[in-house]
Each structure stands twice: as C-alpha cells, then as structure tokens.
C-alpha cells in the first residue's frame, strides 16, 4: 500500500512528467493558452494514460516477454497506443456523446503525445507490476493535468502584461515553465530515494 502511495505522489508531484522528464511538451505548449481547453486535454490524457498503462503492460509481459521478442517493444507499443486512442475515440463517440463533446478534439492529438510512449517505457524500465503500472499511468496523467491547468491559469493572466517583443509566444511560456519547474523542485524532499 505504501509503495503505491509513493508511486502516486512521485508521479504527480516529485518527478512530474512535464517538468522533470520533458515528456508531453508539445501539448503543454500548444493547449495551455485557455483554462477550459487545458482541463479537457488533461482529462483526456489521464483517461488514455490509465488505459494505455494497463494494455501495454499486458502486451509486454504476456506476449513480448513470453516469446522473447522484447526487441519489438517500440514497434508494438506505438501501434498499441495509436490503435487504443482510435478505439477509445470511436467508443466514446458512440456511447457517450457529451463526453465526446468534451474530450473529442483532444483525442487524436494524444497519439503523438510522447508522454504516453514514455509512460510505457518507464513502466518496463522500473519493472512495475500490473496494479502499480495502472496507478503510475493514472498519477502521471493527473500530474500532466495539474501542470497544464496551472500553466493555462498563468498564461491567461499573462495576456494582459507587457512582454518584450522578442519573448512573445513560445519563449515566455518556456521561461514560465522553468519557474514552475523550480517551484516543483520544492517537492523533491517529499520522498527520498
């Protein structure tokens, strides 16, 4: 139980995917200009990540490891993730139109989100078991959402401030992200090791 709690806190706060592993930077820069859209994106990513963690775990340990074809890892993971996103999109569209309205446009963007593949790779690297992997996926998604929403809040305020011309657009967002990363370093004492 304690281990699962540590994985959770670690993935949300201490080793946040965006701010300490730089995974998922593209949507982080692209979708963080409005609070509402960042919430939608965050929820879609959390959902897909929890699911992807479970499915890639099953594929890796039940198929790749059993038949000793681990070298196909990358090819299999990327195919699994791409088809998973596609299936989730079709499923939601059919059975829950309101949810599709909320998450729909963000789903195709998730395939190219490196955080999902990163999640699968870290899961294998750290040898998590099934439950740990799912918790790890869910927590990583939550951590992504947390940073995305925080960033969107800051950017909405920044619209009203006077930014030097050369820093307009991406540079100021990157520097703000740097300051956020500094703030998140404060969590690093939370769990040791």
């Amino acid at each position: 139980m304690k281990e699962i709690f540590l994985i959770f806190i670690g993935a949300v706060l201490v080793n946040n995917f965006v701010l300490s592993y730089f995974l998922g930077i593209c949507p982080f820069l692209g979708v963080s200009n409005r609070l509402e859209s960042s919430l939608g994106m965050g929820m879609a990513v959390t959902f897909v990540m929890s699911l992807a963690a479970a499915i890639t775990w099953l594929f890796y340990y039940l198929i790749l490891v059993r038949f000793h074809i681990e070298f196909l890892e990358y090819v299999v993971f990327i195919l699994v993730i791409a088809s998973l996103v596609q299936i989730v999109e079709m499923f939601i569209k059919k059975y829950s139109p309101p949810l599709y309205q909320a998450l729909g446009i963000y789903l195709p963007l998730i395939t190219t989100n490196c955080a999902i593949l990163g999640l699968a790779l870290f899961m294998v690297l750290r040898q998590y078991n099934f439950v740990q992997s799912v918790i790890f996926g869910f927590a990583t998604g939550l951590g992504f959402m947390l940073v995305l929403v925080a960033m969107a809040g800051i950017r909405e305020e920044m619209d009203f401030s006077d930014i030097p011309a050369a820093f307009k657009g991406a540079p100021i967002v990157l520097i703000t992200a740097g300051i956020l990363a500094l703030a998140f370093m404060g969590f690093s004492g939370l769990i040791s090791g």
């Binding site: 730089f22 011309a165 050369a166 820093f167 990157l174 740097g178 370093m185």
Partner: peptide
C-alpha cells in the same frame, strides 16, 4: 543542469532567434 535550466536556456535561445529576425 537541472530541468528548470533547460526551460530557461531554450526560452532565451528562441528569444534570441526572434530578436535576430526582428
């Protein structure tokens, strides 16, 4: 060398490119 520094370095390099263009 820490993650925060990566964001700062990239931010300033991109800003410098924009500055040269202007």
């Amino acid at each position: 060398l820490l993650p925060a520094g990566a964001f700062f370095a990239l931010g300033f390099v991109v800003a410098f490119m924009n500055f040269l263009d202007r």
